[in-house]
Design a binder for these strands. Structure first.
Lengths: 104, 104
DNA sequence: TTCAACGCCTAGTGTCGCTAGGTATAACTT
DNA sequence: AAGTTATACCTAGCGACACTAGGCGTTGAA
């Protein structure tokens, strides 16, 4: 469970790469050092929601081998949102750190 | 919103002090540097839940001046749970940090 | 040819904490 | 004396979030 930080994780993972859903799951697993292994039922609806909100744009791609993929990229709005959400996470995490006792 | 970390925050705030609900709200506000200002509707049900789970024990106290208060303290089980939840938070936060880009 | 991996999707559900309300006592103002 | 604010506790109901559990179809390997 990503506890309200799913959108930030998705936006940060896509970054400048333009990934498709399945690859996003793998990228999150890899980048998080195995901490997060999100089910498809989590990410697909989230991608749709972020696209509807104008933070992501998708297009269908037909690779040479393999089946069609829906590929997502950040919009300008998405990039701005990522900056905000990163700051929001830092603020949130520092608040929790203060209460739980700093990372000593 | 504490996004799934409310219990850890409550256990850590109570710590060794034995606080009552209203004081817990103020302590969280103070210790978090103003990040978190939790409504009563959040903490009272949570305290009841944690007591039911055996992590907290409460008793009613009549101070010299003022009205009766219900004071909560950690049980042994609560202390153990706090250790676990602190570790859980550190693990979670490091995972998010990795994905969002480390705190540089 | 059958099985796993790839790849997309959604309805329903459970968890969580907040909203919005209630009750009551004590202290401070006017 | 009366009204207001701060203290102090409580709960029903709701909305946000992401997970479960299912479905569909394609590609490559055993």
């Amino acid at each position: 469970m990503l506890k309200g930080h799913l959108d930030a994780v998705l936006l940060a993972t896509i970054g400048d790469e333009a990934l498709h859903g399945y690859a996003i799951i793998e990228a999150i697993r890899a980048r998080s050092g195995g901490h997060f292994d999100l089910p498809e039922g989590t990410i697909y609806p989230a991608l749709h929601r972020l696209e509807l909100a104008g933070l992501l744009a998708s297009r269908w791609v037909q690779p040479d081998g393999g089946r069609k993929r829906r590929v997502y990229a950040l919009t300008d709005s998405g990039r701005r949102s990522l900056v905000e959400r990163r700051a929001g996470w830092r603020s949130f995490a520092s608040g929790i750190d203060l209460v739980l006792g700093a990372r000593t």
